[in-house]
């Protein structure tokens, strides 16, 4: 791309600051809520971050974050790979897609909570149940994106490429893959966001470590500040992955669609 004109640069800078402003506003509201309801119901941001800091000092936060991250990512990769592969297959072979449809309806329809219960029965409490839950809840999302991506392939473009004698590899990487990716990538992002939620939820019900387990402990001990600290930790991680890792890639990937579609 050519260097962005000053107008766009200004916009990009605002894009960076806007979330910060939002967070500041949110903190103010939070504090007001705290003043109105007291520490037991709503600990102040200060108390929450102190609790979070203590969790770090205790050496509880990092292992928990790592455990949750590991499970979320493991489940996400399983679902991302499996969902993409099956979705591509279903896209290219309509009969397979028809066979998969009821199965997918089942996966999509079953509430994540139900999966956790099943996973606990099958895998016992521990990491595997969380990984399984994450994989199973995010799988249909990725799958649907892949199917859609293949279904909407433009055969006219493929004919154009063949008319110039494009070898199969060029045909795939230059013509088909970017199109499929434009459908898959947003689903991956959605799935990744879901993975964290699912992982924390699974841990809450049946794991000895991880953020969810920390939340469960905080609940048992009626430690509202600590519970909020865990929530803050997981939200911070989500925001970090989304804005520092995924958004820039997304912006790059959707540049060709133009302004309107580049922002979510």
């Amino acid at each position: 791309m050519t260097p962005a004109p000053p107008q766009a640069e200004k916009r990009a800078r605002f894009d960076l600051w806007a979330p910060v402003l939002g967070v500041a506003g949110f903190l103010v509201l939070w504090q007001l809520g705290h003043l109105a309801y007291g520490s037991f119901v709503l600990p102040s941001p200060y108390e929450t971050f102190t609790a979070l800091w203590e969790l770090f000092l205790d050496g509880r936060a990092l292992p928990a974050l790592w455990a949750t991250t590991r499970r979320a990512l493991a489940g996400f990769f399983l679902a991302g790979l499996g969902g993409s592969a099956l979705g591509l297959a279903a896209g290219f072979f309509p009969a397979f897609e028809r066979a998969m449809r009821p199965v997918m309806a089942f996966f999509l329809g079953a509430p994540p909570v139900a999966w956790i219960v099943l996973a606990l029965l099958w895998f016992g409490s521990g990491g595997a149940a969380a990984v399984f839950t994450v994989a199973v809840t995010t799988f249909p999302v990725v799958y649907a994106g892949a199917v859609q991506g293949v279904r909407t392939l433009d055969e006219d473009l493929a004919a154009m490429a063949r008319s110039f004698g494009a070898p199969p590899l060029v045909l795939f990487w230059d013509v088909r893959a970017p199109h499929i990716a434009s459908y898959l990538y947003p689903e991956w992002v959605t799935a990744l966001g879901l993975s964290w939620k699912a992982a924390v939820m699974a841990e809450l019900l049946g794991a000895a470590d991880g953020i969810g387990a920390g939340l469960a402990m905080a609940r048992v001990n009626l430690e509202t500040a600590e519970a909020m600290a865990w929530v803050a930790a997981v939200v911070a991680m989500l925001l970090f992955t989304q804005h520092a890792l995924l958004e820039p890639v997304k912006r790059r990937m959707t540049a060709w669609r133009g302004q309107g579609d580049a922002s979510p």
Binding site: D156, A159, M160, V175, P178, H179, W256, R257
Partner: peptide, 9 residues
């Protein structure tokens, strides 16, 4: 071709 058939990406 009748339509340009450009790769949008």
């Amino acid at each position: 071709f009748q339509e340009p058939r450009l790769l949008p990406w």
